[in-house]
Design a protein around this nucleic acid. Structure first.
Lengths: 339, 339
DNA sequence: CGGTGAGACTAGAGCGCTCTAGTTTCCTGG
DNA sequence: CCAGGAAACTAGAGCGCTCTAGTCTCACCG
C-alpha cells in the first residue's frame, strides 16, 4: 500500500481545474456560502474527493483575516483540566471556532504556552486555573480577550468563570448535618487557591445550622501527605464524627491515616472531599465529594471568549460567572455511629 | 491599563519601515540566517521590540513551504500520555520544530484529532498509544510519516517506539526473587495491549530463576476492580508471598482487597505494579512498580518523526525502538515473612 | 422587446510571511 | 586603478487560501 505518499500538495487550484471552474468557486463551495448552483457544488465536491483535497487550514486563517481559533492553556498533569478541555472541545464544535491547545507542565510554564498560542494568532485565550501573577494576566488581557477559568480573581478586568466554592463547602456540611452529624471539622487548604472560599462556606454553613460552637478548623493542604498530617490533629482533641476536606487528595490521606489507626470510615468517621478527582472514584477510596460542573464551566468560558472576540474591544464590561457544584455521594459518609 | 487593545496587527512591513530597511531584511534577522550586519540586526530587533512585533506563525508556515510542525495525538485522560507530551515538548525544543496537540477523549475520538492535525499540515504524526485499527494507521502512514508510541505493532510499515514490557515483567520478578520470594504469582491484563508481553516476561523470568513449578497465572485486568476480584483467586489456593500485577491500578485494587482481609502489605504479601502511574506514588499506596522512560520514548519518537519528515518518502525502512523500563522501589515489597 | 435584477461565476488583490535572484557596496590583491 | 568577490541588502514572486468587485446569463415584467 505504499502508494504515492506526499503528493505535491493538492491545492484549491487543482480542484478548480478538475471541476472546470474558478478557484473562487471552489472556495465558495468549501465555505458553504451561497453563490454556487447545486450542480456545480456537486461537481466541485466530487473533484475534491477524487483528488483527496483538504483545505489548508493555515492558509484559510491567513486569508480571512481572523483565525477563529481560541487558545486554551491547560495543565497537562491536572486531571480536572483534562475534563475541562474535553468539555471545551464539545462546546466549540458547533461554533465554527477551533481550539488550539497550549500545555503547561513542570518543565513548561504558562508563559511559554501563552507565547506559542499568541504566535498562532488566537482570537481569545482561555486560561485554566492559571498560576500567572494577576498583573501578568491583566496585561495579557490588554492584547486579546482572556477568560480565566477555575480561579477566583476579585475585582479584575478580565472575565472569570469559576465554581461556587463557597456553596460547595456549604453543601458538604449540609450533607453531613443531614446525616445527623453535629461535630463537623474542616481540614482546609491553607493558602491554596479556593481555600479561603471553602473555609468561609464551611463557616457560614455551620453558623446557619446553629453549630457554630462545634466549628473546628484544622490546617491541611492539597496533598495526601497534608491529609495524613492533619489526621493527627483531627483525631486528637475533641471528638469529631465528620470532616470536610479541602480536596480529595487531602481527604484520601486523612482516610488512610484514620484507617491505619483502626478507625472505620464511614462508621466512625465520615469524610467529604472536594473536586471529584479521579482518586475519589477509585473503589478503594469511594469518596463522597463535591464535583465541579466541567460542561457548564467550559460552555460559559467559551461563550465569553467568543462574545469578546466578536465584540469591538472593551465594549463589554468584565463578567464573572459562578457555576454551582454538585454533591456526589459515595461511601465515605454515613450517619454517625450511635455512642 | 486598557490601552490600545487589538492594534491592527503589526507586521513585518511595519518593522521594516521603522528600522529603515526592506521587509526581506527583517525576515533574515528573524530567521537568524546570515545576511545582515550586526548593526542592522540590532536596529531591526530594536524596532521590533518598540512595536511589540511578533511574527505570525501561520504566515511563516505558509511561506516556507514546510510547516515544521509535528502533530501529537494523545489521550487527555491518560496520565502517562501527559508525561510523554511533556517529554516531547522538552525534546522538540532545540529542533526548530513545533508541536501541535490533538487531544483524544471519550467524546472525541482519534480520527477527529488526526483530522484536525492534518488540516494544519503537520509534517509528521506521533500517535501515543493509538487505539486506531492497524489498517487505519497504516493508511495514515501512506499520507505522512507516522510514529506509533507505546503500542506494539509487529511487522508493520510504520515506526514504533515502545517500552520493553517483556523485560519489565522480568525485572519485577527478579526484584521479588532477590528479596527471597519464590512463590510469585502474576495477575495479568487478559487481552489488554501489552498484557501478553508482560505475561511472557513473567514466565521467562520464573523459568530462568528455576521457579517454573511456582508459576501461577491469574486472570486480572486493567482496573482496580479487576485487581480486587483477582485477590480472591490469589489468596485462596496455594499460598503466595508475592504478586506482580499487570498495572498499578490492578495492583492497588489487589492491595486494598488484601488489606481488607487483614493481610499486611508488604509484610505478608509483596506486590509489584507496572506503569508507575500517579496512583503508585500516593503515599497511601506507595507501590513498587515498573516505570516507563518517558524521556527516552519521546526522544526516540521525535527523532524518527524528524528523520522521516526530512528524508525523501520511503527511503527509510520502518524501525522499532524498544526502550528499557526501570524498577521503582517503594513500600509494597519486602522480604517474605519468616514462617 | 428592452430593462432589470437575481443568481452563477470569475479576476485579482490581498493576508504576512519566505526565499530566489538579483543589485549595490566595499574591500582586496594584482 | 581596476577586476573580482564577498557581504549587505532589496525586489518581487510565491505559499494556498478569502473576499470584494466585478462580468455574464437568463428569466421575468411592464
Amino acid at each position: 500500500m505504499k502508494s504515492d505518499r506526499r503528493p505535491p500538495n493538492v491545492t484549491m487550484a487543482d480542484v478548480a481545474e478538475r471541476a472546470g471552474v474558478s478557484r473562487a468557486l471552489v472556495s465558495i463551495v468549501f465555505r458553504g456560502v451561497p453563490g454556487a448552483s447545486p450542480a456545480t457544488r456537486q461537481r466541485v465536491m466530487q473533484a475534491a474527493q477524487d483528488l483527496a483535497y483538504r483545505p489548508d487550514q493555515r492558509a484559510r486563517l491567513l486569508g480571512r483575516n481572523r483565525s477563529r481559533t481560541i487558545g486554551v492553556v491547560f495543565g497537562l498533569h491536572h486531571e480536572f483540566h483534562a475534563e475541562l478541555v474535553e468539555a471545551l472541545y464539545r462546546s466549540v464544535e458547533a461554533t465554527g471556532y477551533d481550539l488550539a491547545l497550549g500545555a503547561t507542565a513542570p518543565s513548561r510554564d504558562e508563559r511559554r504556552a501563552v507565547k506559542s498560542l499568541l504566535d498562532y494568532r488566537c482570537e481569545a485565550l482561555v486560561l485554566l486555573g492559571p498560576t500567572l501573577r494577576r498583573a501578568a494576566i491583566e496585561e495579557l488581557a490588554d492584547r486579546l480577550p482572556v477568560v480565566v477559568v477555575a480561579r477566583a480573581m476579585p475585582r479584575t478586568s478580565v472575565d472569570v468563570v469559576r465554581t461556587d466554592d463557597f456553596g460547595g463547602a456549604r453543601m458538604a456540611v449540609e450533607h453531613l448535618a443531614g446525616l445527623g452529624h453535629t461535630s463537623i471539622t474542616h481540614v482546609d487548604g491553607r493558602r491554596a487557591p479556593g481555600a479561603a472560599e471553602r473555609r468561609r462556606g464551611y463557616h457560614a454553613a455551620m453558623r446557619d445550622l446553629g453549630l457554630l460552637s462545634e466549628t473546628r478548623l484544622i490546617a491541611g493542604g492539597l496533598t495526601e501527605n497534608d491529609g495524613e498530617r492533619a489526621a493527627d490533629d483531627v483525631l486528637t482533641g475533641p471528638p469529631t464524627t465528620a470532616v470536610t476536606a479541602f480536596n480529595d487528595h487531602c481527604a484520601a490521606g486523612l482516610i488512610a491515616a484514620a484507617r491505619m489507626r483502626g478507625l472505620r470510615v464511614p462508621a466512625a468517621l465520615s469524610v467529604v472531599g472536594n473536586d471529584n478527582s479521579h482518586i475519589a472514584s477509585l473503589t478503594s477510596v469511594a469518596l463522597t465529594t463535591i464535583a465541579q460542573d466541567a460542561s457548564a464551566l467550559a460552555g460559559s468560558a467559551l461563550g465569553l471568549a467568543r462574545a469578546r472576540a466578536e465584540a469591538s474591544p472593551d465594549k463589554l464590561s468584565p463578567s464573572e460567572i459562578v457555576v454551582p457544584p454538585r454533591l456526589v455521594v459515595r461511601h465515605t459518609t454515613a450517619a454517625p455511629q450511635p455512642p
